[in-house]
Design a protein around this nucleic acid. Sequence first.
DNA 1: TCCATAACAGACTATTTAGTCTGTTTTGTA
DNA 2: TACAAAACAGACTAAATAGTCTGTTATGGA
Lengths: 207, 207
Amino acid sequence: MPKNGAPTRTRILDAAEALVIDHGYAATSVDDVIAASASSKGAFFHHFASKQALADALVERYVAADLEMLDSGLAAARAAGPDPAVRAVAFLDHFVGLADGLMGEQSGCLYAAVLTERQLLTSQTSAPIATAIRAWRDGFAALLREALPAGSPIDVDDLADHVFVTFEGAFLLARSTEDPSHLRRQLGVLRALVETALAAGPQEERR
Amino acid sequence: MPKNGAPTRTRILDAAEALVIDHGYAATSVDDVIAASASSKGAFFHHFASKQALADALVERYVAADLEMLDSGLAAARAAGPDPAVRAVAFLDHFVGLADGLMGEQSGCLYAAVLTERQLLTSQTSAPIATAIRAWRDGFAALLREALPAGSPIDVDDLADHVFVTFEGAFLLARSTEDPSHLRRQLGVLRALVETALAAGPQEERR
DNA sequence: TCCATAACAGACTATTTAGTCTGTTTTGTA
DNA sequence: TACAAAACAGACTAAATAGTCTGTTATGGA
C-alpha cells in the first residue's frame, strides 16, 4: 500500500481545485473534497497538515501551470518574427486561441477565488499569485517596450497588467452571464485595441 | 422602541457589505456581522429571514448604487459635447476620476465576492448583477456605436463589456498587489486604448 | 389611555466542520 | 524474512455556525 501516495495526493488536489474554483475556499469543506476525490479523512490529513496547507499546495501547483502558459505565449511571440508590434500582438493572439479550451476544462480561475478571501490573503497563500502577476507583467512589458510608439501616453507596465485584468474580469463576466465565450471575446478586444495602439504612429507626428 | 428599524437594518447591511467584500460570503458568519454592526441575533433575524436573505438585500442595494454610478457616467458623456468619440472618452474619463475615491472607501467589489461562490449563483442572488452588467454594456455600447470607425474589427458589445471586465480585473489586481491605484491606472489604460481606437480613421481608408 | 405590535436582546439547539487518534495493510529494505 | 514506516480507513471530538424561541420594551393608532 505505501508504494506511492502521489496519485491520491493528485486526486485530492484535482477535486479540491475544481471545488474551490466553483464554490470558493471557505464554502468548500474538507469532507466535500474527500467525497469528491473518493479518499478519506486519513488520506487527506496524511497528505496535508491542514486545510490551509491544501490551499498552499493548490496555489503552488496552479501558479506553476500558469507560468508555463505564460512561457508558451512568450515563445509564440518570439516565433512570430522580428517585428516588435507583430510579436506583441502574437502574444495576445496565442491566448485568444487558447481561451475556449481553458474555459472548457473549468469555467473559472483559482486566483479570483483566492484573492476574494481575506484569510488566504493574510496567510502567505496568495504570495505566489503576486509573483505570477509580476511575471506576466514583466514578460509582456518587455515585448511592449519595443513596440509602443514613442510618446505614447500609455504606461507600459499598466498596459502589461491589463492582460491579467482582462483574464480575471472575463472569468467573472463569463460566470455571471454563463457564457464561456466571453474569455475569448474579451481577449480579442484587448488584442484589437493593442494592435491599433501599436499601429498608431508616434504621438508627436499625429495631425 | 419600534419607532424605526431602518437605521439598524442599514447598520447591519453596511457591516455585512464590508465583511463580505473583504472576507467573502461563506467566510463571513452571521455572528461576525452582528458583532461588527453592534446589533444582536434578535435584531438580525428580525430584519433578515436568513443569511441568504441578507445576501439578496446586500446585492440589491449594491446594484442600485452601481446603476446610479452608471447614470452619472452617461450624464458626464452627454455633457461632454456632441462629438460621439469625445462623449465615449468622457464616459471613461468620468470613472478614471472616481477611481481613487471608490478604492478609498472599500478596496473591493461585492460582485467579485458573489460571483466566485456557486451557492450565490444558483439562488437568484446574483440575478440583479447580471442585469447591472447588461445595463453597463447597453449604456456604453450606445455611445460606442456612433463613435467607432466604420469597418472596425472590434465588436461594440464586447468592447462595452470591457468596462466591467476592467473594473473587476483591476479590483483583483489591487488586492493582490495591495496597491489601490491600480483601479485608476487600469481604467486609464482602457481610456487611452479606446481613444486611440476611436481616433483611428475608418478601417478601409487606412494606408 | 390602552394595547397590539414592531423592534429588539440573548439563551439555547441541531448540525456542520476541521482536526485527532487508533488501527490496519502493504511494502521496500536490512 | 522480520520490521519500520508510508499510506491509508474511519470513528470520534471540540468548536463554530445558522437558526429558534422566549422574553422585554417602547411606541403609535383606536
